[in-house]
Design a protein around this nucleic acid. Sequence first.
DNA 1: CTGAAAGCGCTTACAG
DNA 2: CTGAAAGCGCTTACAG
Lengths: 349, 349
Amino acid sequence: MRSEKPKLAMIAETLSVSVATVSNALSGKGRVSPELADRIRETARDLSYVPSMAGRALRTGRSGVLGLVLPDIANPLFPQIAQAIEQAASTAGYGVLIGDSRGHTGVQTEAIDRLIDRGVDGMVVIPRRGTRISDIGCPVAVIDTPSTPGNTVSSDHWDGGRQMGAHLRGLGHRKVLILAGSPQSTVQNDRVGGLKSGLGPDAKVEVVWLEKLAPPDVPGRPLGLAACVRQGFTAFAALSDLTAVRALTELQGAGIAVPDQASVAGFDDLIWSSVVTPSLTTLRMDMAEIARLAVAALTAVIEGLPRGRVAASGTVTAERPSVPMMLVVRQSTGPCRSLLPDMAEGAGQ
Amino acid sequence: MRSEKPKLAMIAETLSVSVATVSNALSGKGRVSPELADRIRETARDLSYVPSMAGRALRTGRSGVLGLVLPDIANPLFPQIAQAIEQAASTAGYGVLIGDSRGHTGVQTEAIDRLIDRGVDGMVVIPRRGTRISDIGCPVAVIDTPSTPGNTVSSDHWDGGRQMGAHLRGLGHRKVLILAGSPQSTVQNDRVGGLKSGLGPDAKVEVVWLEKLAPPDVPGRPLGLAACVRQGFTAFAALSDLTAVRALTELQGAGIAVPDQASVAGFDDLIWSSVVTPSLTTLRMDMAEIARLAVAALTAVIEGLPRGRVAASGTVTAERPSVPMMLVVRQSTGPCRSLLPDMAEGAGQ
DNA sequence: CTGAAAGCGCTTACAG
DNA sequence: CTGAAAGCGCTTACAG
């Protein structure tokens, strides 16, 4: 029912003061007497004044918007990431613009450019396959993995792998198959490294990179996991919940009981992992914290705060570069029964 | 290496014309001689000129940004939706700002308000549980289901259900359990209705609303599907792929072979459905088309196009209100073997 | 402590 | 067909 969108001038007029004073009062820069400032804030509230982003942006050269670019849009992590970033950004007073390169790895630059053209003040990028981010023209926070140069902040994927490895080792597993995606992914390599370390030197570990399978791996194609069980593998550690669910259903479809005959574990704790039977043991990322750190790093340099730094790599530096992952133990992993060929008995529940 | 971000004035200066002329030429409103317009466009390109959104927004009162609000952020459809909307918006020259109400159904207004405050020109809303959208202060496109008043455009969920029902019926299934989420969801109700219709009058159909289960349903809890099979249910139609995967793994875990002993089907064709074994029969939405229609409806009223209409409900009207769903038949559904109690034999493959 | 003025980069009547 | 001018809503030196 308000007659019109209130502007600074309206408040000024209402109180018979200058817009400059209103602006100063509202921005709390303290050049205004406390009493006047109070009155100004009050009538601003009464009029439900909302500053015009356009006016402010034009004047200050800052849009108050951050870009979020996920090259790999089909990424099932997207909801988690988008939610966390939006939350952190909004708390920091920023909006979040979606940048999507629709899977075309090369076209990522285009998505970034579009974001720049729209005037984002900074952006957070979740790279895939070592996409190189450099002099983009605005501060960039990269969420990848601590071992990547230019990484701003991320989960400690290596340690996550280590936790998973230790868990599996603790259950007695000594012959483990790691189901990985792309060998080009630093995140995945870190997870593999940690897994091996956690499993210990006496474990027999094999890695299959789905992407390297020939003929090219198709989602629906069986991975031959039952044969692996017959060969003595007792645990399957997938580097993503998606692959874990794939492994789980393949095993179950072949009549192999999980976790009785083989353990299965995933990564990332997507909702799916808690919904399947048996529910999946997995590693949860603290996306909220990662997002908070990434956004804080960004806003620090955007707002010229003392702590804000842009590293040589062109990306922004966070308070701390890595956030621990948390092991979530559920039903899909159990003690190693190391039962070899004689697995015909039952899949009974 | 460009010395500075080029502005309209620079182009004008370079060509010794007025900024007004440059503006007119670039916006193609045709008040400029073709030759001059060409030269202007050319130098604009050479200088890699990008208009300042802030300047334009302040002047025109339009931000060139659309809001996307999904109250149910954990929604696994999010990647699909976000990608499609971003694609459509970007093609139409708009950016997309994320609006998230973080699950708090009531707080949705807050998310919407934040978007409004940021000056979005319109927004697309995917409501849950009959959230009421009204006089928000900007054009709104609602993507829900055709039977909801105020729906702008959406999949034809009823017909999708019908297709699935017909498919199952064609395979001989006559006793089907529908796994639904919330009875408050119009989308789900439509799917249920279609399913029943497609299954035909002689089919015995039961619906279990997961949300109404007492004690409240927890993701990991078994749904007692094996017992249902013993009772003669031969097919399980889940209203989402998430639930379908849940059902599939529960059945498999209980030693019931899918699709040999029971068929399972889902909805939405998330990536998960093609990855599990057996891969899931499901219904795919044409999100790209839906997004295109929604965005077109929005931009039509934003840009004051002749076709653009705001319906009485306060939401925008699309070229057509519904888009067909497409049945994707995969391995999880098969002919009904109608094997009753004697299902002890084998889950072996 | 408060205000008048300039200007951020555009677009849009309005003249010429 | 082209241009001079005003103004969108802010913030920021600069005076007072």
